[in-house]
Design a protein around this nucleic acid. Structure first.
Length: 415
DNA sequence: TCTGGGGTCCTAGGACCC
DNA sequence: TCTGGGGTCCTAGGACCC
């Protein structure tokens, strides 16, 4: 049975839904099938952008993040819908359910993609058969297309799922790297964006394969720790585990909004801050977490963006508290120029239930600490006839020379 | 008529402590 | 009179991904 599985090593799937939002809409309304369809953030707004588009739209040059007006110019017959997140969430949870029926080692990465570790699924057949079955079910039951990459680690699985779309099944083994991975352009590599691609091209690295032979010190000099990691990945090495719990320890919750028009109007900006604080508070409450740091983001008319944050000594989660801190930060740091976008984020999150525990622990430590300190001071006072700490304070305050009493104490102390 | 909104991770400097 | 080095926390910005 285990003939298909490596003796040492893992079998990882990366499942990626193809043009997910558009595909879900087509599953709901089959009349949309075969037509150029785009999902746009806010179709009525000037500043709407393309979130996803069907393959028919892509054929006309429509791309994700393209401003809507530009997409319509390229493809005048483009059908545009606004996102319907309820539908997408439902389809997503059905898809993850099907994955979880195969193995509990499922790591959701976003609404439409996830990793699976099927290293121990011998009883279900070969990896390729498992992947085929999963892809078939998702297509048959949900009417949604997906691509699956099969590889010995997450990075290669991710690259593999990208190689054939839509409805691709791609196996990428170590022995396939030379022909399937290394010839790809460097900007195709997961983890390499425009900036990194520019830096790498400047030193003659144009293909993923070029990374393999590159000098590691040189890479580290240019890209920091990421340079080393990219090289490891290019060599096909990635030990990061499939972590089903990764989605639970989120680190921040934030909301931001681009205004219809750039503005300096105080009441508009205050209202928006209030609205964003409320949204964040609602989401914190739903997840039953609280946070210690509040961050605001201001994007000005010229797209220059600043963030300002402050960490409080207590945890907060209410709309009132978040709004109050956000307003303070805003008033302190806004330079008065027209604003395009505002954002409010709460970071340093912990579970609500942990706050009480922490508070108890803190009280305990404080109390224990105070008791211990009192004891020490008492002992010292007995020994020297008076509290040495007090005289230290006064001598520093008044800039007086040390008394012989303090010298004694210090000598004693340093022993 | 340019370019959304949700995140994570890394870096780097300064404060502060030991 | 001049002085180390490591660790952690906080803050701001940048790169990347979906």
């Amino acid at each position: 049975m285990s003939k298909w599985y490596p003796k040492n090593g893992r079998v990882i799937f990366h499942l990626d839904m193809n043009s997910f939002y558009a595909s879900v809409e087509m599953a709901y309304n089959p009349k949309l099938k075969g037509k150029p369809l785009a999902i746009a953030g806010n179709p009525e707004e000037r500043r709407g952008i393309i979130v996803t588009s069907s393959y028919e739209a892509r054929a006309k040059g429509v791309k994700t993040t393209m401003p809507l007006w530009q997409a319509k110019r390229l493809c005048p017959e483009l059908l545009v819908m606004r996102p319907n997140f309820e539908r997408y969430r439902k389809a997503s949870s059905e898809m993850f359910k099907m994955m979880a029926e195969i193995t509990p080692y499922v790591q959701p990465v976003s609404i439409d993609e996830g990793y699976m570790d099927v290293s121990h699924c011998h009883h279900l057949g070969s990896p390729l058969d498992i992947a085929k079955g999963l892809q078939f079910r998702i297509k048959n039951d949900l009417d949604l297309p997906c691509s699956i990459g099969i590889a010995p680690n997450k990075f290669l699985a991710k690259m593999a799922s990208d190689m054939q779309k839509p409805m691709g099944l791609t196996v990428l083994r170590k022995r396939d790297l030379k022909t399937k991975l290394w010839p790809l352009a460097i900007e195709e590599m997961y983890g390499v964006g425009q900036k990194t691609a520019d830096k790498l091209q400047n030193v003659g690295i144009h293909k993923i394969g070029d990374l393999v032979d590159a000098n590691t010190f040189e890479l580290k000099r240019i890209l920091g720790i990421n340079g080393e990691r990219l090289q490891q990945r290019a060599k096909g090495e990635d030990t990061s585990p499939v972590d089903p719990d990764a989605i639970y320890d989120f680190k921040s919750i934030g909301n931001s909004e681009t205004l219809r028009e750039d503005t300096v109007d105080d009441s508009t900006l205050t209202m928006l801050l209030r609205k964003l604080s409320r949204k964040v508070a609602t989401r914190l409450a739903r997840k039953e977490v609280v946070g210690q740091t509040v961050q605001i983001m201001i994007r000005y008319y010229n797209r220059k963006t600043i963030t300002r944050s402050i960490t409080k000594s207590t945890y907060l989660s209410s709309e009132t508290d978040i709004f109050s801190v956000a307003t303070d930060l805003f008033e302190l740091h806004w330079n008065g120029e027209p604003i395009r976008l505002l954002g409010v984020t709460v970071q340093g999150l912990i579970e609500k239930s942990q706050v009480a525990e922490q508070l108890d622990l803190f009280r305990y430590q404080e109390q224990a600490g105070n008791e211990a300190l009192h004891e020490v001071v008492e002992q010292l006072t007995t020994k020297y006839g008076k509290n040495p700490f007090q005289s230290f304070t006064s001598s520093v305050d008044k800039d007086q020379p040390r008394t012989s009493f303090q010298k004694d104490f210090l000598d004693d102390f340093r022993k």
